[in-house]
């Protein structure tokens, strides 16, 4: 949202420079006083934040009868004799469509991440390095459109893509189009803000050397914008992967259903089969979590560069 924060790397902590490395009890490496209030407060918050997920993880490795008769925390005190089982995971893949949902989610998420970035990068290039009529007006329009709730699109798009129109709802193609459209304003905004920080002289000299805009874009701007491209890619990937509404409306619960939609139908199950829910939930979370941990730095950068999405 605020364009000035683009370059401000939030960073998950760098302050080693603050002070001298003398160590006395009660001081940290960097010489600041150790604050026990902060440590305990933070510890409490961290426990509070982890417990719900931990509960799900532990429960997913317990049999249905165990999970229904004792709380998950009880086995933490007796982990050797807790009857751990991977049965739920086996049955999730054998007995439900969650496995194919996982594949479908990949098929939805990868193009829905890459395509908008490519188009947005071209648009951002035009907004940053070219002069043309209506430039300010169009860019302000993009800023405004960012907050429009995507719900406005559903009925008209169902008409357009559904049986009354192109008849491609329930197809991956429809969902890619939608995610491309919905992700576009933010993508252009984030990339343009980043490109505006690149040195203009480089572009000038490329121009002097006779490079076309097309060449300058691919050979100079794209490589230099990798951090911003990666940042948006991660945001968009997580959004698309975790999306329920668009997947439910435009892919439905049939053969093309995503893992999140499959999980939602598991959530509706009562009684028998309910134990699969925990394993299913975890399967749906694994990939985003891996992406998240591996690329956290970029993700943070994406968020701090103004991620408002309608």
């Amino acid at each position: 949202m605020s364009s000035t924060t683009v370059t401000k790397e939030a960073g998950l902590a760098t302050k080693a420079t603050r002070s001298t490395p003398s160590r006395t009890p009660g001081t940290m490496k960097d010489g600041r006083r150790r604050s026990w209030v902060s440590i305990l407060g933070m510890l409490a918050l961290c426990v509070l934040w982890t417990l719900p997920t931990l509960g799900l993880l532990v429960t997913s490795f317990r049999s249905r009868i165990d999970a229904a008769s004792t709380g998950w925390w009880t086995i933490l005190f007796n982990p050797g004799n807790a009857g751990w089982t991977t049965d739920n995971y086996r049955r999730v893949f054998e007995g439900t469509d969650l496995g194919s949902g996982f594949v479908n989610s990949l098929v939805v998420a990868i193009p829905a991440t890459v395509i908008p970035i490519m188009f947005a990068a071209f648009a951002a290039y035009a907004f940053t390095f070219m002069e043309f009529r209506g430039k300010d007006f169009l860019f302000v329009g993009i800023v405004a459109v960012m907050v429009i709730p995507i719900q406005v699109a559903f009925q008209p798009m169902l008409n357009l893509l559904g049986p009354r129109g192109l008849d491609i709802s329930q197809e991956f193609f429809a969902v890619w189009l939608l995610h491309t459209g919905f992700g576009m304003p933010l993508a252009i905004y984030v990339l343009r803000n980043y490109m505006a920080t690149l040195p203009k002289t480089i572009i000038e000299s490329a121009k002097m050397d006779g490079a076309t805009h097309y060449q300058t874009f691919w050979r100079l701007i794209v490589p230099m914008s990798v951090p911003a491209l990666a940042a948006f890619a991660i945001l968009q990937f997580l959004w698309v992967w975790n999306d329920f509404l668009i997947a439910k409306l435009f892919l439905g619960s049939g053969g093309n259903a995503t893992v999140i939609v499959e999980l939602q139908s598991l959530l509706g199950t009562q009684g028998l089969g309910r134990e699969l829910l925990t394993a299913g939930a975890f399967v749906s979370m694994v990939l985003p979590m891996v992406v998240f941990f591996a690329l956290q730095r970029f993700f943070v950068r994406g968020l701090t560069s103004g991620a408002v999405k309608g």
């Binding site: 902590a13 940290m28 490496k29 960097d30 604050s35 902060s38 961290c46 749906s284």
Partner: peptide, 24 residues
């Protein structure tokens, strides 16, 4: 106010739910 390492770990913990879907 935490040490560099403490800050980084605790932030990751609080931040992690960002990767989880609403349905999850």
């Amino acid at each position: 106010r935490l040490s560099t390492r403490g800050e980084s770990v605790s932030k990751s913990v609080i931040f992690l739910p960002m990767a989880i879907s609403f349905v999850g």
